[in-house]
Design a protein around this nucleic acid. Sequence first.
DNA 1: GGTAACTTGTTACGATATAACATGTCAAGA
DNA 2: TCTTGACATGTTATATCGTAACAAGTTACC
Lengths: 157, 157
Amino acid sequence: MHPTFQSHDHSHCAGDNLARAEALMTERGARLTPVRKRVLEILLEAHRALGAYDVLQRLATEGFGNQPPVAYRALDFLVEQGLAHRIQRLNAFTACMHVGESHAPAFLICRKCDTVAEAPVAPVRAALEATAEGLGFALERASIEAIGLCPNCREAA
Amino acid sequence: MHPTFQSHDHSHCAGDNLARAEALMTERGARLTPVRKRVLEILLEAHRALGAYDVLQRLATEGFGNQPPVAYRALDFLVEQGLAHRIQRLNAFTACMHVGESHAPAFLICRKCDTVAEAPVAPVRAALEATAEGLGFALERASIEAIGLCPNCREAA
DNA sequence: GGTAACTTGTTACGATATAACATGTCAAGA
DNA sequence: TCTTGACATGTTATATCGTAACAAGTTACC
Ligand SMILES: [Zn+2]
Ligand SMILES: [Zn+2]
Ligand SMILES: [Zn+2]
Ligand SMILES: [Zn+2]
């Protein structure tokens, strides 16, 4: 089973990812400022996708700005740096669970409990790349988002 | 090369798809009313993804309602019936080019000319299905959307 | 310390989407 | 034929998501 779907020490996995994110930012000379860091923490604590306005609301109660650009800028930064991903289907954002590793993920979204898992799908990507190339299409980026039931909700049903 | 990317008699390919759509609706006892049919035609004439408000604007100049629900309801109907697809990345809609055939498409979106091609990607789906099953996730639907350069724009660059 | 690049805050607005209710259409079945 | 219920459309109002533009503060570097 995918780790996201198992019960686990979440504060530990979040802290782990946060540490890796900070190291990576230092290495790149990019600045993980307080807002950005806090947004990343918020995402890491959630284990599901959060809308920009959800994030904003939490920021506002903590003394940061309370206008949309505050959230969107931090989120955009995290996405650019590969520390977070955007889930198109949900107009929402989720923390990357594989920081640093070169990865081309797919997202498995549970329609019951809203959990989002980041699954490594290198073979799927390869197949897509092959198809595109066969059609003369120069593939640059692709988003793969699946809807269904996570193992827990599946069992409950 | 994928047919979408070739120059072709577009009015013919549109008329063809429209005829198949009407036949399918009759067969199902679903009603392809004037608004719905017109929206489908608009999408078929475009060969690219159109936003709901783009569609709405054209409807309004033709004597249909000019409020958002008019467009959204027709578009939702077409998507439910498999006559159109929603492109998540673009918040836009495109006519299905393979009406009736059971198909699980991926969309190849040219970031230069905005053309959208519907590519059959059964192997890609199969790989994704296998991955999901391996993780205990019950996959129901998935959207696969690729960004890149179509053959024409690729050559021009 | 001066300066340029970057970051944050704020105002204002644009774009996308839906809830709720009124009205109109159509096809059975009484 | 007339009623009636299901479906479709029109309309108002509002919710949700996202960005342009500018002002003010901070940081890195010479
Ligand atoms: Zn990731
Ligand atoms: Zn679930
Ligand atoms: Zn299709
Ligand atoms: Zn192109």
